[in-house]
Design a binder for these strands. Structure first.
Lengths: 255, 255
DNA sequence: TCAAAAGTGTTAGATATACACCCATGA
DNA sequence: TCATGGGTGTATATCTAACACTTTTGA
């Protein structure tokens, strides 16, 4: 990349294609959280995502992903975390880059290249956050017609989440610091949309060194109290591969 | 994304962060090809990648990934294919988006967000292409100190290629229209850097519906002639998930 | 007929899947 | 004591990995 470059400020012929103006860079985030199914408590949870109501053209009055323009001095991931926090009040427990959408005709008002992030937030975080007036949650599999190409983006994020939850340990990001294996299983079931064998799921998780028992039990259950587990932050000595602290598989876990 | 937007042309406060100037968008491509090991023919092939010599500051005289600024009217993938063609003369048989690198301090002359693509080219394509004066190939695992953060980018692309070759059918992109299972195996071995059991590899490939026998045999071998296979372009009815023809898992296969 | 690579067969071990069954607690 | 989810055991099917062995050609 960056074959040549004028001094900053004078952007020379950079990006001056047939359309004239250089592309603008935006950052957006698809946020996933687990919420109880209906109004009745105790039912199986399902995946929900928050959207922001657009208050101006284009796509006025349609729901859109939280996001905003990328400031010149802000990191991509930081901009994603900031913009999603400003609009929804949420603090993600997991945040990773998903894909960059740059279709020429994505926006009717000009070329926009959007770096999309995928975020997971804990259920308790959702409950205590104060969402803005123009924020509404929708079931991830029952979306309205969104602004721009955001329907396709969410669909892709959902697909990625489903494949990734099977080989990466990200399900715990939906839960609190400690959790039971049943809770973890219900996360997997909600994401995958299918029931899992409790016995086999338990074994496969217990086999992983990332999931460790705390030694404590959960109290207050109307039956046998389950063991509590914790996700072990894998040595945190994961070789970093980028000299400029840009890690393609970065993961932020909330303290 | 795209919460609000002035009319194109007047970019308003878009991207006007602490650093002032809005970020520039570049597109770069990590190109992989299989080349014979040493000068001796017949030895096991290895992975090579081409780089372009920088002819100006910053990072003058260092090798860099092929790429360039994104024109306002060009698709991301198109820009990747064009810039890699202009510099190396190559036509990729596979091209997919890898990751977007946007670290604030990636370039000493200003903020640059680079959408990086990963490309595979066939061996015969490499042989017939006329590379420019300032293009040189290096073994992917023996790189010099590259410009910017390109060492980290290539390392990441290599890691992705290794993991992806195991579950996705992309190895054939290094070969011609038809190929023997031995050739395909040697591709996997070169990418993974380890030998594979010929018998088991054959079975696992034959089990896949994507790999089909043409019915013909390869002639001119000094031993038993092997069957030729072809990659079946999986129905090409892969559900597209993006209304604006932007497919996160797009794949271009050369005719 | 020999070398070399193509291609098939077989088996032990590991992993996945289904499901029977016991355990510990609150009500 | 009973209902309920927590947790263990176990048998079967499937997949994986290792390697012996047969086949087919050119030299």
């Amino acid at each position: 990349m960056v074959q040549e470059r004028e001094p900053p400020g004078s952007h020379g012929s950079q990006g001056s294609g047939p359309q004239g103006a250089p592309p603008a860079i935006a950052v957006s985030t698809v946020i996933f959280a687990l919420r109880p199914e209906g109004d009745a408590t105790g039912s199986t949870p399902s995946l929900w995502t928050p959207f922001v109501l657009r208050t101006r053209e284009p796509h006025l009055d349609r729901w859109a992903l939280p996001g905003g323009w990328l400031p010149g001095g802000e990191e991509l991931e930081s901009a994603a975390a900031r913009t999603l926090g400003e609009t929804t009040g949420l603090h993600p427990s997991y945040l990773e880059q998903l894909y960059t959408f740059g279709g020429v005709d994505r926006s009717p008002t000009g070329r926009v290249v959007t770096v999309v992030y995928s975020a997971l937030v804990r259920t308790d975080e959702v409950e205590q956050a104060a969402p803005g007036e123009n924020v509404r949650w929708f079931r991830a599999d029952r979306l309205p017609r969104l602004a721009f190409d955001h329907n396709a983006i969410v669909d892709y994020a959902l697909e990625r989440l489903r494949t990734k939850v099977e080989y990466a340990h990200i399900a715990h990001s939906f839960l609190g610091e400690t959790f039971t294996l049943s809770q973890l299983r219900s996360v997997h079931e909600a994401v995958l949309g299918q029931e899992l064998d409790a016995a086999n799921f338990r074994r496969s998780m217990a086999a992983s060194p990332e999931i460790v028992a705390t030694g404590e039990l959960m109290a207050g259950t109307p039956h046998r109290p389950p063991k509590l587990y914790r996700y072990r932050n894998q040595t945190h000595a994961t070789r970093h591969r980028d000299a400029q602290s840009e890690n393609p598989t970065a993961e932020r876990v909330r303290p």
